[in-house]
Amino acid sequence: MHVRYADDGSLAVAEAARRLGARLVFTATPDPHRRVSERHAGDRARTAAGREELRQDLHRVFAADRLVERADEVVGIPGPGGTAELVRHFPQLAGVREGRGPAAPPEGITAHRPLPDEHPRGERLLERLFSAGDRPAALDPAARGLPLLLTVGRLHPLKQQHVLVRAWIESGLHLRSTLVVVGGSARADTADAAEREVRTAIAGLRAAHPEAAARLALVPALPNAEVRCLERALVRSGSTARAHYVCPSAKEEFGIAVLEAMDAGLPVAATGRGGVPHYLRGTVNGLLLDTSSAPRLARGWKGCSRCRTTPSPR
């Protein structure tokens, strides 16, 4: 059995594995230990909310430590420094593999296999995207000649789509570009609490800046094949200005959507936190962004005009 997250669900799976006599593999990351040292170093614990956050983070530390103890094998997620940081937080792993630390198997994406109707389907996706500026999921057709920013992922505070929207508006980028956010439920009433938080924040920004509304599209989640088809349609489109992919997440352990966008040929700007720097090198094949706030995200994104090409990550 394999568990990935340091939470009670993974502990339950670990206990089930023990009772069944099955082997347990745990994929560990420097978080939550790193998160505790970074997030709670100041005065956050002096408030009731801060103390509750600390309690939850410490419980995740407890869960991660128990999983490391119980696992038959621990593997890490690849990063620029290998698993050295992981060993700093889990010193009991220092002696694994004759002192080399846990293995970090390389990650990747499934090779794109063009659909039989790839080109016409891509054109239909573009037509639907630019069908009307008065619908939340579509853009103003008159804006088709503007540069386009695309981000794909589940709507979640960690993914920070709302921070991207704020940066796009407050920096004035909405005056000369469009923004497409793909992700979330087709019906808002079926969204979970985390998604509702992001939706509410984006809706507030849209209402406060009606001049940006027609250039912002919040598209419900698409099948992976359609996302990759849309990305390639944007790359080859002769009627749409240069499209770029941006990942505003607070961090990404790996960033599958980032790598898929690079594979499609889109210039990419992505968070510098997590596993993305393992394959994206700033100003070489993309931009690494400081996504800790909307102003910093906007400042970093403005440098994307320097990225003329995006070499294949392969």
Rank of each mutant, 00 (worst) to 15 (best):
A194Q: 13
L216N: 11
L93V: 11
A212F: 13
A213I: 07
R196D: 10
L125C: 00
A194G: 02
E197T: 10
A191K: 05
R124W: 07
L149K: 00
L218E: 14
P114G: 05
R187K: 15
A94M: 07
R128P: 00
R166C: 05
V219R: 14
R113T: 11
G108F: 10
P106Q: 11
D117V: 00
R187E: 15
L115E: 10
P105E: 04
L150P: 01
L155S: 04
A94T: 09
E195D: 03
D192Y: 03
T151S: 09
L148C: 11
A188Q: 14
R100F: 04
P116V: 01
L218A: 08
H174I: 02
V152P: 06
L205Q: 11
A194N: 08
P223T: 03
L179E: 09
A143V: 06
G133E: 13
L148Y: 06
T151P: 01
L115G: 02
E195L: 03
A188W: 09
R135V: 09
V165K: 01
G172D: 06
G204H: 05
T151G: 02
G133V: 13
A214N: 09
L175M: 07
V152C: 01
S171M: 06
R121P: 01
L205W: 07
T200N: 07
L164N: 09
G145S: 12
R124C: 04
L222P: 02
E127V: 07
P105F: 09
V152A: 03
V163H: 10
R121M: 08
D189R: 15
H112D: 09
A203F: 02
A142I: 03
W168A: 08
P157R: 05
L222S: 01
D117N: 11
A191V: 07
R97V: 10
Q160T: 05
R176V: 05
E127S: 10
T190L: 14
A167G: 10
L93R: 02
H156R: 00
R196Q: 15
A193R: 13
H119S: 11
P220V: 07
L179K: 07
L158C: 01
S177R: 13
L158S: 06
P120W: 12
L173M: 15
H162V: 00
E195N: 05
N224T: 12
A194V: 00
G133K: 13
E170V: 03
R97N: 15
G145N: 13
L164Y: 05
R135S: 05
R206N: 00
A212N: 11
L150Y: 08
L93P: 06
T200A: 15
A217K: 05
L216W: 04
R199A: 08
A201P: 13
L205E: 10
L149Q: 01
R196V: 09
A213D: 13
H119C: 00
A207M: 08
G183H: 06
R154G: 09
P220M: 08
L175S: 09
H119L: 14
L216M: 10
G183W: 07
P116L: 04
G145M: 10
L150N: 03
A138Y: 00
A212M: 10
A104T: 14
A208N: 11
L129E: 04
V152M: 04
L150H: 02
P114C: 09
A188I: 14
P116T: 03
L155M: 11
D189T: 15
H119W: 02
D140H: 12
L149D: 02
V96T: 14
S185R: 14
A186M: 04
V180R: 02
L93I: 13
